[in-house]
Design a protein around this nucleic acid. Structure first.
Lengths: 201, 201
DNA sequence: CCGCAAAGTTGCGGGACACGCAAGTTCGTG
DNA sequence: CACGAACTTGCGTGTCCCGCAACTTTGCGG
């Protein structure tokens, strides 16, 4: 049998179904026009059950995205130890979104737009991202021989990286942008690692 | 008469009273134990009126903080034009919280703690901060001769600065920290401007 | 000084949400 | 196959946010 038995698998399945339904419906009709009731119906469970899995609509929508973000620390740990930190961070970030030249899934694009657009969703995603930063800071601390609890550096790097990821997403979403998400990420993180030098003017 | 007549002044007064009450009560009894009803009562208006001013408890609590954040762009514009961008940003940030050696107001400290601690409030403050970043990005764009709408740089700087401010606050709040808030800010922003170099280990 | 339009406040009511609780149902292990 | 644990569901409750329609205050022009 799979990980942790059939029960656990079924739970994860329902959770995914709910998250997916929440995202899809919100993209289709707009966040405010979707009731918890609708999401539950779409996933084939009762409205009450929805709240056994997620504490809010926003949390459900954001769940998949946050799961990806949480993978960052693992990805960072997998990078070669002799690689410069910022290269490792940039490549780990890029690998999270790299489609290998395949044009991005329109549903995913719509999802990203939703998270940057709908205030309530944005609040949730930012909040959860800050949460995930703690784990990332741990990984950075480990790599640099520091203490994420006491030293400023690891948390600062994690926070700056999150910021860069968000801005890169915005930039990528903009009208008339021909770069890939991965390219936007590398660009933003590169500038960050260079100290965001003020260009001569 | 003052700015925009008595009517406007009274409105701002009520708004401030509500925000203040929301913050104070939440610090005293904990965010979840405060009803909109309580806040309204404390400010001497009806519960319904509360929602004429703020769309949520969290928004009321965060209002003062965000007002300060919005002042950043103005402060940046007031810095000498020949000052390096990052010096200007650091000094503008520091001046927002500089008490000139006076120990910080315990109520303000409790407020900051609340914003970093209570999930709902944190979500709101992050969301509004991102909003305020747009204005800051405009100011940075102006200073560097760029276009905040198209260029990545100004938004990236604004976002990174916000991140640094948040982490600096966390660091400052930590047990066994003897630095001032302004010092924490200068430290964090300094590291950012230096490209967050990986220290040798 | 006064009355009137604009702006602000309030109460009411409804829609939605989140969650505690206590049944009922399903699962998987011994 | 039987039994306890885990999960689902319905119900009820407390809270929130806001539209709407009175009512009250404000301040301006005659």
């Amino acid at each position: 049998m799979g990980t942790e038995g059939l029960r656990e698998r079924k739970k994860e399945q329902t959770r995914a179904a709910l998250s997916w339904a929440a995202l899809r419906l919100s993209v289709e009709r707009g966040y405010r026009n979707v009731l918890v009731e609708d999401i539950a119906a779409d996933a084939g469970v009762s409205p009450r059950t929805f709240n056994n899995y997620f504490a809010s609509k926003a949390e459900a929508i954001v769940w998949r995205h946050i799961n990806r973000a949480k993978a960052m620390s693992g990805l960072l740990r997998d990078r070669p130890r002799d690689e410069p930190l910022w290269t490792a961070l940039a490549e780990a970030s890029a690998s999270l979104v790299d489609d290998g030249g395949v044009p991005p899934d329109p549903d995913w694009v719509a999802g990203v737009r939703l998270m940057l657009t709908e205030p309530e969703v944005l609040g949730e995603v930012l909040r959860r991202t800050v949460e995930a930063e703690r784990t990332l800071a741990e990984a950075i601390a480990e790599r640099t021989g520091m203490d994420a609890g006491k030293d400023l550096y690891p948390r600062l790097v994690a926070a700056a990286l999150s910021a860069a990821q968000r801005v890169a997403s915005e930039q990528w979403m903009q009208e008339g942008n021909d770069l890939s998400m991965a390219a936007c990420l590398r660009e933003a993180i590169g500038q960050l690692a260079a100290g965001l030098p003020e260009p001569p003017h």
